[in-house]
Design a protein around this nucleic acid. Structure first.
Length: 441
DNA sequence: TCGAGACCTCCCGG
DNA sequence: ACCGGGAGGTCTC
């Protein structure tokens, strides 16, 4: 299967402060981008997108599958959202790749303005962020985001990436190859809901997540109405191509009021393998809810270490109450795009980015010695998935811990306060969804 | 409500 | 060489 339709390189004016792909594409939002020979590649809506970046432009091109091939070997199911018109003339102006990229990178938000806002209201952000500029929240396909983050539970980034790659290679339609490496689109829920899928995924090394994926795929593809996931999107956030109100399914209660972050979060909790953290990842990176703050072990560490929140909390695992309290705390500090701010600090806290943090630090020292040099944009990718040994945090870690630890009461107070206010409903809904989930099985 | 354990696998450090 | 713990959690009791 040889021919691929490859477009010319085009470019979008964009500063590194607005978007740094070397950071954004590997900080654990999408697990599907691959860097080959200094260019990033990923299949988005039926085409391979290739990216490279310089100081003031994002360069891109699209590679379309060979037209009129007929049903290719393997499952040729429609991509997650909307099957694109394939095999068009690639040079044409009707190519929607630019608008796809604007949507995918959520370019309508001014990132530098947001950074300024967060830095002004949070000294810790102001201290950490300068080494991690250009980190945006991606506006991904909700189904892909959902499955990827079901895979993420109790797992590490490099294995998550491997799992997602296998999922695409075995179940997604083949789109094309780059430098001899095959690229597949992400498989839709229909193909993943077959009866043999769970066993197969287990065989592929998915572990207990195999069951969650198959079960969630079944629920989404056959129990929920078409477009159910897409309708959970933030209406204020431009949708990824798909028109959102095009589904006029006059169901009884499903055609209800527009969703809110809370209702979207709650709806996702019904799915198998989806707890509060995964639900927030999907809300933030797949549904456009900028206030969603996924609280994982890293964010929980950050809350305790840098914000003195939840000190003295004894349990090993986060209770639902504490989970919500952490998110509310950060929403109070950072505002309606708290999830975006969170990802900056989250990235700064990742072991694989420790080098970047330390480089920035020594750089600050060097700068004082009056040498100008502003690199720190793209640390070398360490042999694909190999987590580099980071002990760089050591010194700072201890100094931070040294700061006085008196305000555990404050954290508890805020937690209490936020939990009485508006979360009664949400939590009873959470319990209800738990019940439904267990009843279903 | 809350808190333990278990859960698949891989990988790293002692 | 072998082993315990952790990895961007969730489910069950």
């Amino acid at each position: 299967m040889g021919l691929q339709a490859v477009s010319d390189w085009r470019k979008l004016p964009l500063s590194l402060a607005e978007l740094c792909i070397d950071t954004t594409l590997r900080c654990g939002q999408s697990f599907r981008w691959r860097k080959i020979k200094d260019e990033w590649h990923c299949v988005l809506r039926g085409r391979i997108i290739s990216l490279r970046q310089d100081s003031d432009h994002l360069h891109y091109r699209a590679t379309w599958p060979e037209p009129t091939t007929g049903p290719a070997p393997g499952p040729m199911t429609p991509p997650p959202s909307v099957p694109p018109a394939r095999g068009k003339d690639v040079g044409a102006e009707e190519d929607d790749t630019e608008s796809l990229l604007r949507s995918y990178f959520a370019l309508s938000h001014s990132l530098s303005s947001l950074y300024k806002h967060w830095a002004a209201s949070d000294a810790n952000f102001a201290r950490r962020a300068p080494a991690f500029t250009g980190i945006r929240i991606l506006n991904q396909d909700p189904w892909e985001t959902l499955v990827a983050f079901i895979c993420s539970s109790n797992n590490n980034i490099s294995r998550i990436s491997q799992m997602v790659l296998k999922l695409c290679a075995h179940y997604g339609p083949y789109i094309g190859s780059i430098e001899g490496e095959p690229f597949h689109d992400f498989p839709g829920p229909e193909v993943l809901s077959g009866s043999e899928v769970e066993a197969h995924l287990r065989q592929l090394g998915f572990g207990y997540r195999a069951k969650y994926i198959a079960e969630t795929a079944r629920i989404v593809s056959s129990e929920k109405p078409a477009g159910w996931l897409l309708q959970l999107r933030n209406p204020a956030c431009a949708a990824l191509g798909a028109p959102l109100s095009s589904l006029s399914e006059g169901d009884d209660e499903t055609a209800a009021a527009p969703p809110t972050y809370r209702t979207a979060h709650e709806a996702l909790l019904q799915l198998a393998g989806v707890g509060p953290k995964v639900a927030d990842c999907v809300c933030l990176m797949g549904l456009g809810w900028g206030e969603a703050v996924p609280v994982d072990t890293h964010v929980w560490q950050i809350a305790q270490r840098d914000y003195n929140f939840g000190k003295g909390y004894k349990s090993k695992t986060l209770s639902k109450t504490m989970y919500d309290a952490v998110g509310d705390h950060f929403r109070k500090i950072w505002g309606p795009q708290a999830g975006w701010a969170q990802s900056v600090l989250f990235t700064a806290n990742l072991k694989s980015f420790a080098e970047q943090a330390s480089a920035a630090k020594s750089e600050a020292v060097v700068e004082m010695a009056n040498v100008e040099r502003t690199a720190l944009v793209s640390p070398p990718l360490s042999s694909d998935g190999g987590t580099d040994t980071g002990q760089v945090f050591g010194s700072e870690h201890t100094t931070t811990l040294r700061t006085r630890s008196g305000s555990s009461n404050l954290a508890m107070t805020m937690m209490k306060q936020s939990s009485d206010t508006r979360q009664g409903d949400e939590r009873s809904a959470w319990r209800a969804s738990k019940r439904r989930k267990t009843a279903a099985t």
